[in-house]
Write a protein that binds this DNA or RNA. Structure first.
Lengths: 245, 245
DNA sequence: ACCTGAACACCGTTCAAGT
DNA sequence: ACCTGAACACCGTTCAAGT
């Protein structure tokens, strides 16, 4: 379902090694993708620290060193795991206004990241570029360009939405429970009021804002509103907001 | 310079153990803060993977197990390292419009994160609440509230800016070199044009947008513009943007 | 061709002991 | 009171060998 043509053919060519006639040579027990999916599954269950070459091998019923036949490194395995997570991500081209389309895309990205929390940390270090991931980018780009944004603005705008979503999930994942919220509120209330008057007064609001759908939607609205304002103002006054006044 | 009163007094009370008269009992070679700062320094030099209890101990000229007298865990040490990084962060209350003040704050946060890149990854897992970190929040809150935002809006607005900045630094740190940009552009150009027409056409723009001051400022402007629009529209029409149309 | 145990150079941390 | 080496239960990975 992802990178179809290339991967399938690669797997096939691996499988068809025995066509020589002797048919005695062993063929790999798994494909790269199968190993990656097993690793993703294990990752979901035991977290990033629990994903070990040893435990993964055990899970698959092979010797540890067998894994090094599929991947040069643990690093390379982890890249494949990120790819496997992206492969699950099946987005259908949305309809509606450009804002609606982007809302949908960003929502999909958010839920995809939430489905495999450990993936996020993995992606921090790699600028991922596999086709599966870029499918969403393509759709977002075309929505923005149809709305009248230039190519440069489109790239910038999509990047903002992408970064916001990533930042949100990274810091507002389901790890922000009610308990964490209470801790935050308590910590804010303990601050010296002389130095932190506004924060002490807003302790409750600060805690509420740590996560949740409402906060996510609010930020999304703000960004889309800002983009819309930028779009509307085009040509008239090319935004000299960055200057002094 | 950070959490002044408490920490200093704690360090003093540690030092003054020998006041009993005998003066023979050994006192700790370092304070907690000194160990944390040494760890931060080591972190900057060798990265997160290189920061080991063993190497840190060696750096300080003590046995490995001595560190466990200061911190129960490596986890607890890392928390202290994040705190030590926050302690360096000295922000002076800014002036100007609320947008200017927030621009300044966010810029400070960005450069603070850039100064110790490994800190970012550390902060992903901990909702940090030390006073040093919250100083910036207090200033941001008061700027937003003076601009007329409600407490709830203020908390939401500041959170957006915080998340955007974090996301930006996480994915657009100095690790995005020209080489990475070239890779991105090349990867985009290699996509099948039938499926990715917009992305292929915007390969150059996509690469440019991966990092850099211009992109950061653009996103910041968009968010501030969106916030301003929200502020201006208050009361009139309480934003039913989230609905269908 | 494909698989794998033993071994190496590391980790964080417990334990029992040293002054 | 403070410090610490030895030891334990782990890592990722190299190497040389097994079928």
């Amino acid at each position: 379902m992802y990178q179809n043509s290339q991967n399938v053919s690669k797997a096939k060519s691996r499988r068809s090694v025995g066509e020589g006639g002797q048919g005695r040579s062993r063929r790999p027990a798994y494909t790269r993708e199968e190993v990656a999916r097993a690793a993703l599954d294990l990752l979901d269950r035991v977290g990033l620290d629990g994903l070990t070459m040893r435990t993964l091998a055990q899970e698959l019923g092979v010797g540890t060193m067998t894994l090094y036949g599929y991947f040069r490194d643990k690093e390379e395995l982890l890249d494949a795991v990120v790819d496997a997570a992206a492969a699950e991500h099946n987005i259908t081209p949305p309809s509606g206004s450009w804002q609606d389309q982007l809302r949908y895309l960003v929502g999909e990205l958010r839920s995809a990241l939430a489905r495999h929390p450990a993936i996020l940390e993995l992606r921090l270090r790699r600028p991922l570029l596999s086709p599966g991931i870029l499918r969403g980018t393509e759709i977002g780009y075309s929505a923005l360009m149809q709305a009248g944004f230039s190519r440069a603005e489109t790239a910038r705008a999509f990047r903002i939405l992408f970064l916001y979503t990533f930042g949100f999930v990274a810091f507002s994942a389901e790890s922000v429970t009610d308990e964490v919220r209470h801790q935050v509120q308590a910590a804010a209330l303990l601050l010296p009021e002389a130095e932190y008057p506004t924060l002490v007064a807003s302790a409750k609001e600060t805690a509420e804002v740590m996560g949740g759908d409402a906060q996510f939607e609010f930020g999304l609205d703000i960004i889309l509103q800002g983009l819309d304002a930028r779009r509307a103002g085009r040509g008239r006054r090319p935004t000299r907001r960055s200057r002094g006044e």
